[in-house]
Amino acid sequence: MIAVANPVEFSAESVARPRPADEASRAAWDLAATVVDPEVPVLTIADLGVLRSASVSGDRAVIEITPTYSGCPAIDAIRDDIVTVLEGAGYAEVTVRSVLSPAWTTDWMSAEGKQKLAEYGIAPPTGTRPVGPVSLGSVSLGMGIRCPQCGSLHTRQLSRFGSTSCKALYVCQRCQEPFDYFKDH
């Protein structure tokens, strides 16, 4: 936690907001939307649903983003990249805020984003995993996860946790390839 240049700020937002209607804000949104996830560089923060809003007054831009997971270190890199892109485009003052509520969900990932993930070799989330009573069986049942290499649904979970907070590790029983699965959240 040393040297966090921009401490977490708090605000709560109501709903998944679309691209802003007014022209100035929309231009800032479109610039911010070019920033990619440092861990999954085929996805932009707009694809991920991490970009929440943009508003502009004069040469000042305020961008709101939401972390995928509370401790995700990518959020700091994303924040820096947004500032770089917008300052490069001439905005004099760029503020990036982290919003915590409503909490990010994989439901906000665009269809295009899911397609890009699969092409990149990461199985996209299948649907929303409900928060509820813990599963008690020794085998937890879930939707079949499709292998992004060969398309088989005959896959098996190797580890519930993966190389980043948002992924789990799977292996395909048909082509034998291991692959990342972007967890439902």
Partner: peptide, 24 residues
Amino acid sequence: IEEDIALGNIALDLIGHARSFLTY
């Protein structure tokens, strides 16, 4: 090794919660 990753991931989530609570 999967458990190294699991406990590390859980610790990372907890750091995130701690940062929010402590900042507030």
